[in-house]
């Protein structure tokens, strides 16, 4: 499978890559990241573009873990009404809403769902796969996944490789609260330490500046600015 990811408004940079993946005979997913940053109509327009380039599936990607269940609902519903291909949903658990959002997406007709075992993903991780398997089973949705084996995998294989247990830390929470790309968390922590400032201040400022995925370079820029501002106040 190939996933071709673009920022939610920039689908028109993807035709080359979608065509190439199709040429290689791969199932091809158009992955619209930071879906919270565009109005629903824009998201639909961009998903249609990816469909027209040949994508087999289009995804609503909540890269910042910012969306609330109703916002997920209206996005998936709009896509189901306007595209003919599969619709998928990718959650982050920064606001503890990954499971709730995933269920909302499924109820609206999403048929591709992402999870991460033991929440091993950026920020607070994604919908926890082994938990999702259990929940779906309770809901009467057949997954074909062995629940015990999945739990063992999470506990015995994945948990030991996590540097710290996956929790909603104040940094992850701030990602979801400010609408910032989840992979920014670790870089921000480093920059906060280097410049001796609060990482939350960096994340909030990044959210205000509407940075998108790939702009990790802005973290040091913003950190340096905040640090310089602080120095000015002190002196």
């Amino acid at each position: 499978m190939a996933r071709i990811a673009t920022h939610v408004t920039e689908a028109d940079v993807s035709p080359q890559h979608i065509a190439y993946a199709k040429e290689l005979g791969m199932e091809t997913v158009g992955f619209l990241m930071m879906a919270h940053m565009a109005p629903v109509e824009k998201l639909v327009e961009q998903a249609k573009l990816m469909e027209s380039y040949g994508a087999d599936t289009v995804y609503v990607v909540d890269s910042a873990g910012y969306l609330l269940p109703d916002q997920v609902r209206e996005r998936i519903r709009a896509l189901k009404q306007s595209v003919g291909v599969n619709v998928g949903f990718h959650a982050h658990n920064n606001l503890s809403l990954a499971m709730a959002n995933t269920l909302a997406a499924i109820e609206e007709g999403a048929t591709r769902i992402d999870g991460s075992v033991r929440c091993l993903g950026a920020g607070a991780g994604n919908t926890q796969t082994e938990v999702l398997v259990a929940v779906l089973e309770r809901m009467g949705i057949e997954t074909g996944v062995d629940l015990y084996k999945m739990m063992d995998l999470a506990e015995d294989i994945v948990a030991p490789i996590l540097q710290t247990p996956q929790e909603i830390t104040k940094d992850s929470l701030t990602l979801g609260y400010a609408g910032v790309y989840s992979t920014f968390a670790l870089h921000t922590k480093r920059a906060a330490k280097k410049f001796n400032i609060d990482s939350r201040d960096i994340l909030i400022e990044l959210g205000k500046r509407k940075v998108v995925g790939g702009q990790e370079d802005m973290i040091v820029d913003v950190a340096a600015e905040i640090a310089a501002g602080k120095e000015k106040v002190l002196s």
Partner: peptide, 11 residues
């Protein structure tokens, strides 16, 4: 690595 940012007002 080029990044296209749709923020308004444009950056």
């Amino acid at each position: 690595i080029p990044v296209f940012n749709p923020a308004e007002p444009p950056i």
